[in-house]
Deep mutational scan, measured.
Amino acid sequence: MSGIALSRLAQERKAWRKDHPFGFVAVPTKNPDGTMNLMNWECAIPGKKGTPWEGGLFKLRMLFKDDYPSSPPKCKFEPPLFHPNVYPSGTVCLSILEEDKDWRPAITIKQILLGIQELLNEPNIQDPAQAEAYTIYCQNRVEYEKRVRAQAKKFAPS
Results as ranks from 00 to 15, higher is better:
residue 146 K to M: 14
residue 17 R to M: 03
residue 32 P to T: 13
residue 44 A to D: 07
residue 38 L to D: 00
residue 32 P to A: 13
residue 117 Q to Y: 09
residue 27 V to K: 13
residue 152 A to C: 03
residue 65 K to H: 12
residue 46 P to G: 07
residue 139 Q to A: 10
residue 24 F to W: 05
residue 145 E to K: 11
residue 133 A to S: 11
residue 136 I to A: 11
residue 147 R to Q: 12
residue 100 D to S: 15
residue 112 I to L: 15
residue 111 Q to K: 15
residue 78 E to A: 11
residue 31 N to Y: 12
residue 32 P to G: 11
residue 100 D to V: 15
residue 79 P to Y: 15
residue 150 A to M: 09
residue 121 N to I: 10
residue 146 K to H: 14
residue 52 P to C: 10
residue 57 L to Q: 11
residue 146 K to A: 14
residue 47 G to L: 01
residue 131 A to R: 08
residue 135 T to K: 06
residue 127 D to W: 00
residue 93 C to V: 09
residue 75 C to K: 03
residue 41 W to T: 01
residue 89 S to P: 11
residue 138 C to R: 13
residue 145 E to Q: 11
residue 97 L to Y: 05
residue 34 G to T: 04
residue 21 P to L: 05
residue 121 N to K: 10
residue 124 N to E: 02
residue 80 P to Q: 09
residue 126 Q to T: 13
residue 3 G to L: 10
residue 96 I to K: 04
residue 96 I to F: 04
residue 50 G to W: 05
residue 68 Y to C: 04
residue 110 K to N: 08
residue 87 Y to H: 06
residue 146 K to F: 08
residue 57 L to F: 09
residue 10 A to E: 01
residue 144 Y to F: 05
residue 62 M to S: 04
residue 100 D to L: 12
residue 11 Q to F: 07
residue 56 G to T: 00
residue 141 R to E: 03
residue 85 N to F: 09
residue 82 F to K: 06
residue 21 P to C: 03
residue 138 C to F: 05
residue 129 A to K: 02
residue 91 T to E: 14
residue 8 R to K: 00
residue 103 W to S: 01
residue 116 I to V: 13
residue 88 P to L: 13
residue 114 L to A: 13
residue 64 F to R: 01
residue 46 P to T: 06
residue 11 Q to C: 14
residue 76 K to Y: 15
residue 15 A to C: 13
residue 134 Y to D: 06
residue 14 K to N: 07
residue 56 G to E: 01
residue 13 R to G: 03
residue 126 Q to R: 14
residue 147 R to I: 08
residue 77 F to L: 07
residue 88 P to K: 11
residue 73 P to I: 08
residue 5 A to P: 08
residue 157 P to I: 05
residue 81 L to F: 07
residue 68 Y to V: 04
residue 154 K to C: 00
residue 111 Q to W: 14
residue 122 E to A: 12
residue 138 C to E: 15
residue 91 T to G: 15
residue 155 F to G: 06
residue 11 Q to V: 13
residue 96 I to R: 09
residue 78 E to S: 11
residue 139 Q to Y: 14
residue 137 Y to F: 09
residue 143 E to D: 11
residue 3 G to T: 08
residue 75 C to R: 07
residue 2 S to P: 09
residue 126 Q to A: 12
residue 84 P to R: 02
residue 146 K to N: 11
residue 142 V to M: 13
residue 123 P to D: 01
residue 59 K to L: 10
residue 152 A to E: 03
residue 62 M to V: 12
residue 26 A to D: 04
residue 81 L to H: 00
residue 23 G to F: 03
residue 36 M to Q: 03
residue 44 A to K: 15
residue 23 G to M: 02
residue 90 G to I: 02
residue 43 C to H: 00
residue 74 K to I: 15
residue 153 K to R: 12
residue 38 L to N: 00
residue 86 V to H: 09
residue 90 G to E: 00
residue 35 T to M: 04
residue 156 A to R: 13
residue 75 C to T: 11
residue 74 K to C: 15
residue 10 A to D: 00
residue 112 I to K: 08
residue 5 A to E: 11
residue 155 F to Q: 14
residue 109 I to R: 03
residue 143 E to K: 10
residue 104 R to H: 01
residue 34 G to S: 06
residue 24 F to K: 01
residue 115 G to V: 00
residue 21 P to H: 05
residue 150 A to L: 13
residue 103 W to A: 01
residue 114 L to S: 12
residue 49 K to N: 10
residue 71 S to D: 15
residue 15 A to W: 08
residue 115 G to L: 00
residue 51 T to H: 07
residue 157 P to K: 15
residue 118 E to F: 15
residue 34 G to N: 07
residue 147 R to Y: 08
residue 87 Y to F: 14
residue 117 Q to N: 09
residue 46 P to Y: 07
residue 17 R to P: 04
residue 106 A to P: 01
residue 117 Q to R: 11
residue 2 S to G: 15
residue 136 I to Y: 11
residue 80 P to M: 14
residue 157 P to C: 10
residue 135 T to A: 13
residue 66 D to W: 07
residue 147 R to H: 08
residue 123 P to M: 01
residue 101 K to H: 14
residue 15 A to D: 14
residue 139 Q to M: 12
residue 158 S to I: 12
residue 87 Y to W: 06
residue 142 V to R: 14
residue 107 I to R: 06
residue 105 P to W: 03
residue 116 I to K: 04
